[in-house]
């Protein structure tokens, strides 16, 4: 197989490549944040009026630890009652599985093509 000669990359082109990569990276982190889709917020399903340690489901020891930490039933209310919502739809689960499998399939596929080229050049046919 013919020896592949990589072109020399100019300084400007190198800079552009770095900028593209940084922009994509920052985008991947901040776009879900900005769109407010960054999930996993806890919510309080049924708030307690005039909470006491008992009504928050805390026994004496648990209440004592909270008090040592500087909480009162009022200030600890949200902390104690907030829960995650783990409900999900099978459709969403299937989408996620499809995305992951597609990603690794794509990865292995393209890698294999490139790898054959590397081996062919390195070791000859």
């Amino acid at each position: 197989m013919a020896h592949y000669e990589a072109p020399k990359q100019s300084k400007a082109s190198q800079l552009i490549d770095v900028l593209v990569l940084v922009a994509l990276t920052v985008g991947a982190l901040f776009v879900p944040l900005i769109l407010n889709m960054a999930g996993a917020a806890k919510t309080v399903a049924s708030p307690e009026e005039n909470p006491t340690w008992e009504s928050l489901g805390q026994n004496a020891v648990q209440a004592a630890q909270y008090e040592k930490l500087g909480f009162t039933p009022e200030t600890a209310h949200d902390l104690i009652l907030a829960r995650f919502d783990y409900s999900f739809t099978f459709g969403a689960l299937l989408v996620m599985i499809a995305v992951i499998v597609l990603y690794y399939w794509l990865m292995l596929r393209f890698s294999e093509v490139e790898y054959r080229e590397v081996i062919a050049e390195k070791f000859g046919k």
Partner: peptide, 8 residues
């Protein structure tokens, strides 16, 4: 997926 599906 249960908590951070969107980020994933």
């Amino acid at each position: 997926f249960l908590g951070y599906g969107t980020q994933l």
